[in-house]
């Protein structure tokens, strides 16, 4: 029998949803690849929040007798840790995997030879990153709930908030990872962006304790906006900044990052 014998009607059948949204085929590929490693990740995605919560919330918290702004230290840092987990997972999944897909295993080039466009390839991979952000944050949320650190029904909105944080940081990082040719640049990103943000963007202490110049850096970082929103949600209090302001600011990072990343993907894939 001929390998290329056209089946049935002679017209290749188009799969419904994937036919309409080609990026879903890329997401599917990423999930198939993830199926090989997810078990190893599940344990650590519960262990890490557990350890940080015990270490910082209960260990350090024991010395912070007055709490922060009227809430216990554990309750104060839990939403911050949820937001910073979203940041770390989003950046982690948008650095090496993206560089590797261009430089090492070159799957993006294989995808670009199919009907997929640069935007589909980018969109499908970003969707996978959001999936990872969401599942990791849900693990954290679950541990937090067990510790009784969630105090408001608004906590139910945190999954949406972490998705927004994830999108706001993943898209510009995709652009960055698509523009560099060596992974030593990726470590720079962690050293000079991720770690400072995690430490100074309001996760462990209010940014008001920072000197003015640094405080403005914290305000500029997407993480602070995410932390403030998450904290408002889990504690059921008003955020320091207006909610639409936060959402718009993170949305602007996401939109700007998307346009930049798509341009970078096109430059690499269509030459």
């Amino acid at each position: 029998m001929s390998v290329l014998e056209k089946a049935d009607s002679g017209v290749a059948p188009r799969a419904g949803l994937v036919g309409r949204v080609p990026a879903l085929a890329v997401l599917e590929y990423q999930l198939v690849a993830y199926r090989r490693t997810w078990r190893a990740g599940v344990f650590s995605s519960f262990l890490l929040p557990l350890l940080t919560m015990v270490g910082f919330g209960i260990g350090v918290g024991a010395y912070v007798e007055s709490g922060v702004g009227g809430v216990s230290y554990l309750d104060f840092i839990v939403p911050g840790l949820i937001a910073s987990t979203a940041l770390q997972v989003a950046v982690g999944e948008s650095t090496w995997p993206v560089l590797g897909s261009f430089e090492w295993i070159k799957v993006y080039f294989a995808q670009a030879a199919s009907p997929l466009r640069a935007g589909d390839i980018l969109g499908g991979h970003v969707a996978f990153v959001l999936f990872r952000v969401l599942t990791s944050s849900l693990a954290f949320l679950l541990v937090a709930a067990l510790f009784g650190a969630l105090h408001s029904p608004w906590a139910l909105t945190t999954p949406l908030l972490v998705l927004l944080i994830g999108l706001a940081v993943a898209t510009p990082v995709f652009a960055y990872s698509a523009s560099v040719r060596s992974d030593s640049y990726l470590s720079l990103l962690f050293r000079f962006a991720v770690i400072p943000m995690s430490l100074f963007a309001g996760v462990f202490f209010p940014v008001e304790s920072l000197p003015t110049a640094l405080r403005w850096l914290a305000y500029a970082s997407p993480l602070w906006h995410g932390v403030d929103l998450c904290r408002a949600a889990t504690l059921g209090v008003a955020p320091d900044w207006s909610v639409p302001g936060h959402l718009l600011y993170l949305g602007a990072w996401a939109a700007g990052g998307w346009l930049l990343a798509r341009a970078c993907f096109r430059r690499r894939l269509v030459v």
Partner: peptide, 12 residues
């Protein structure tokens, strides 16, 4: 996985 980029149904 590659077939899916062409919108080919999983079974096919």
């Amino acid at each position: 996985t590659y077939a899916r980029y062409f919108g080919i149904p999983r079974r096919t």
